[in-house]
Each structure stands twice: as structure tokens, then as C-alpha cells.
Amino acid sequence: MKVVIIEDEPLSAKRLEGMLKKYDSNIEILAELPSVSSAVAWFKEHGDPDLALMDIHLEDGQSFKIFETINLQVPVIFTTAYDEYTIRAFKVNSIDYLMKPLNYEELSAALDKFKRLHVDGTDEREPALEQLLQALQPKEPEYKTRFLISIGSRLKTIDTADVQYFYSADKVTFLVTTDNQRFPVDFSLDKLQAMLDPKSFFRINRQMMVRLEAIEQIHVYSKGRLKLELQPAHKEEVFVSMDKVVEFKEWLGK
């Protein structure tokens, strides 16, 4: 089986590659692509593989744009941290739709389904009617309650309630806990915005998202600039970007 991985988070791509090899060591990973543009260029040059695994949110837009740009017939397993794209995913060659963080058992079941449909030749193609109907029903958003963290060869979970803020540095996102432990996470700040409860967390600038309880003091400077003191303290000065000040004040008053 020849597979292409389209994923803009390097750690997620490597973890997905490991799960694919666990499922079948003979799977050949042809490419790992981080963007719509790189995927379009690759498919134009190489054609369709046996299967593609696509994150929906890529660094330059949604992966659905790939299908809008080129005539792509490859079967797809979508992976995403969001659940509002189920219907659209099933309209573009979707085998399955898996929520992050990925679970090996669910990925294995999706690969089994792909083999039944496209390798063994049995016509079991199903629109997952119950799943599609559920997706159409309005429902309360489910926000992320914990994060899986890698520490060397060990894994541990950290409750979202224990996270004080997130920040990005050198293209890596870190979380900081109440006891000042810092760990890298697999999600960009853009993706975390959709995964976390907006009542508790606010994106104050391009590099940082903070929990309300982490804010110890707010200093007002000239021209309305706001400087925050956080607990635990951040290694650099923390400012609310000017375009976020009004929204930030509204958030504080909710």
C-alpha cells in the first residue's frame, strides 16, 4: 500500500507514520506534505497513491482546496481536531473521518475499511448515515479536557484545567502548567483556539494564549497598550496586541 500523509504538524505526521507502520510494516510512505500548495504540486507530478491521510486544516488553508484545484480520485482518511466538516469530507472520496488526537484502534478500523472497499473489492461503501445525521444536529461544543505529552520515552496526560497558558517559539507550541512545567504540544495556537473553551482562554497575540486565572496584574500604558503579569511568570514581557485590546477587555468583563 502506497500512502501520502498531508499534515502540517510535524509531530502528528511522525506519530501517524508510526501507527501506519504498526498496522502494516509494508506500507510505503511516499511523501509527508504540510500544505495545500505542496500537495497539489506533488499530485500533479506523481499522480494518485493508493491512499491519502489528510488533516483538514493545513498551514495555507483547508485540504478541501486540493480537490477544488485538481481532479483527485485518491481515497482519503481525514484527520482533524474539528468536527464540523463531516458532511463535506464524505463528499470528496472520504473513507473515514478521525478526530485528533488519533487513536490507533480507530485508524486501524479505517484502514480495514479502506482494504474492504478498494483492495478486497467488496462493495460496502456506506455513507455512515447515522454519523451524518448526528453531524447535522446542533450540539454543545466539546472542548479539549486534557493533553497527551511526550517526555522522552514516556507519555503523560495533563488536564486542561492545569494549563495556565500556551505560547509558540521557533515554530513549536508549548503549554505551561500551574506548577511552571513546560511541555511541547502537537497543536498550533490557531488550532488550540478552536479546541479550548473561549470563556477560559484568550489569544492575546500571535504567540500566546492565556487562561483567565493566569493573569495576576494588568498594566495600562499610553495609547491603550496592555501589559500582563502572568503566574507562572513568562520568560519574556507579555503584551496584548493592539488589535486585540477591545476584545480582550470584553472577555475580561464576561
Rank of each mutant, 00 (worst) to 15 (best):
S108E: 11
F201L: 09
F43T: 00
S35I: 04
A89C: 09
R88K: 11
N180I: 08
K65C: 11
V246Y: 15
L133E: 14
S108Q: 10
I151M: 14
Y85G: 07
F166R: 04
Q62D: 13
D24S: 12
M209G: 05
I27W: 01
M209N: 05
L98R: 03
K191I: 12
I70M: 14
A194W: 08
Y82Q: 06
K100D: 08
P184L: 09
V36S: 01
S94M: 11
F64M: 09
L107H: 03
T79K: 03
W42K: 02
V36A: 03
S168G: 10
E250I: 15
D162I: 14
P10D: 09
G18L: 09
E68L: 14
L129F: 14
L11R: 05
F202E: 02
E124F: 12
T157P: 09
K191D: 13
K235H: 12
I218Q: 06
V220H: 12
R211E: 05
A194I: 06
A52Q: 01
T80G: 05
P10S: 09
E17G: 03
Y23F: 14
S200W: 00
R125Y: 11
K65W: 10
D112W: 12
M19F: 13
T86Y: 12
V163Y: 10
Y85H: 13
L175A: 01
D123T: 09
D243N: 15
V176G: 01
D123E: 11
E9A: 15
A89K: 02
L72T: 11
F114K: 01
Q217R: 09
Y165Q: 13
L175N: 03
A194T: 08
E237S: 14
E236Q: 06
V3S: 01
K113N: 03
Q217A: 09
A135H: 05
N180V: 07
V76C: 06
K65Q: 14
I27G: 00
F64H: 07
Y143V: 07
E9D: 13
Y104Q: 15
T160C: 07
I56T: 04
K21M: 10
I87G: 00
I66E: 02
L20Y: 01
G121P: 05
V76I: 13
T160D: 07
E130T: 12
F90N: 04
F183Q: 05
S108G: 07
